[in-house]
Amino acid sequence: MTALGDLIEIDDRTVLVLGQELDLGHDRPDVANALVHRVGDTLVMVDTGVTAAFRAALREAADRVGPWSRALVLTTHGHPDHVGNNDLADDLDVPVEHYVPAPDLDQMLDPASYWVRSFERIAGLAPLPAPPAATAGKVVSLFQPMRPFGATTRTYEERPLERIRIGSLRFTGWTFADGAVRVLRSQGHCAGHVIVYLGDCGVLHLSDEGNGACGAMVDADQLKIQTVLGAVSRLFEEGEAVVLTDGHTFSVRRGAEVVSYLDGLLEQATALQTAALNLAGEIRRIRPSTFATRYAEAIADLHVGGANPNALFTAMTAVNVLRELGLRPESDAADAPWSRPALDNPAPAATGT
């Protein structure tokens, strides 16, 4: 049984700091895992979680992988469970750089509005404990202290975009520490998401791209999630990466186990889309409340899902899946039916000879 702040040593220079699951019923925030690594004299910290207890665990991990005389703090995306202790960069007492994704700045500056948008989409589809604005405020209030920016914070996008080749695969992103640290754009779980590859030890930190087979967030992109899962699997098949860590499963996966795990996520994605087609494909018109209920049943029947499973995230995913299937709301009314646009196939005009 793991606990918040537990450390998993990957090697003598790399430590995974474990977070915790979300528990809305007990007002407990989720806390994302963070990766702490040393390359040469540089401390690399990937995400900072949230809560004072997790901050203390990060400092312990940083001491364990030392010594270091400079630091690089990398934020994978802007969700509050990943960014609450970002100002730790200011307290390391060494020259430091801190980078965040530019597409996530809006939600980092105003997280309540981001969650209001997410919950407004599912009003009437899931048992919100309060109206969307109040629910969003409650959720955001759990993540304290919330300090996503420091004196040195910049966006990745202020640096020139690079073409990055790892094995047979090509990515775009940014490199640090003479190429030992590579930040790869993925942008599936949310608009600004990146993953991090540590070339000197073969560790790839997937962060939340592996948080279930389908995305729940309002700015999630199902195709990008599934594409990056396939690409990462290829890196492990080629031996370019040997250890996989992520934001929420509280474990370290190695070698062939990783390929099997990622293939399983992709199998889940295809199984869920098949189930969704069975629910909505033939009738081509369905109320989202009905679809969300049946989709939740399909998830239970298939024994699939991501970290922090709850009714709210399942309903958010269901709305995204409806869009993925090409359905659109017929009006702005609450729980208005969704359908596909009618196809207009007039008979071909007669042609002369």
Rank of each mutant, 00 (worst) to 15 (best):
V83L: 12
N86K: 05
N86W: 04
L88T: 04
L88I: 14
A89Q: 03
L92S: 12
L92W: 04
D93K: 11
D93W: 01
P95Q: 04
V96T: 15
Y99K: 00
P101Y: 04
A102K: 12
A102E: 14
L105D: 11
D106A: 15
D106E: 15
P111A: 11
A112G: 06
Y114M: 08
Y114Q: 06
W115C: 07
V116L: 10
S118D: 13
F119K: 04
F119H: 11
F119P: 12
E120S: 14
R121M: 05
I122D: 05
A123L: 12
L125H: 01
L125P: 05
L128Q: 00
A130I: 03
A130M: 11
P131I: 12
P132F: 03
A134T: 13
A136N: 06
K138W: 10
V139S: 10
S141D: 14
S141H: 02
S141M: 08
L142M: 13
F149V: 10
G150W: 06
G150K: 06
G150S: 15
G150Q: 10
T152H: 09
T153D: 09
R154Y: 10
T155I: 01
Y156G: 06
Y156H: 02
P160I: 00
I164F: 03
I164W: 01
R165N: 07
R165M: 07
S168K: 05
R170G: 14
F171N: 07
F171R: 11
F171E: 07
T172P: 00
T172K: 12
G173Q: 02
G173M: 02
W174C: 05
T175H: 07
F176C: 05
F176R: 05
D178E: 15
G179H: 09
R185F: 01
R185T: 10
S186C: 12
S186E: 15
H189A: 14
C190H: 04
A191W: 04
G192K: 09
H193V: 02
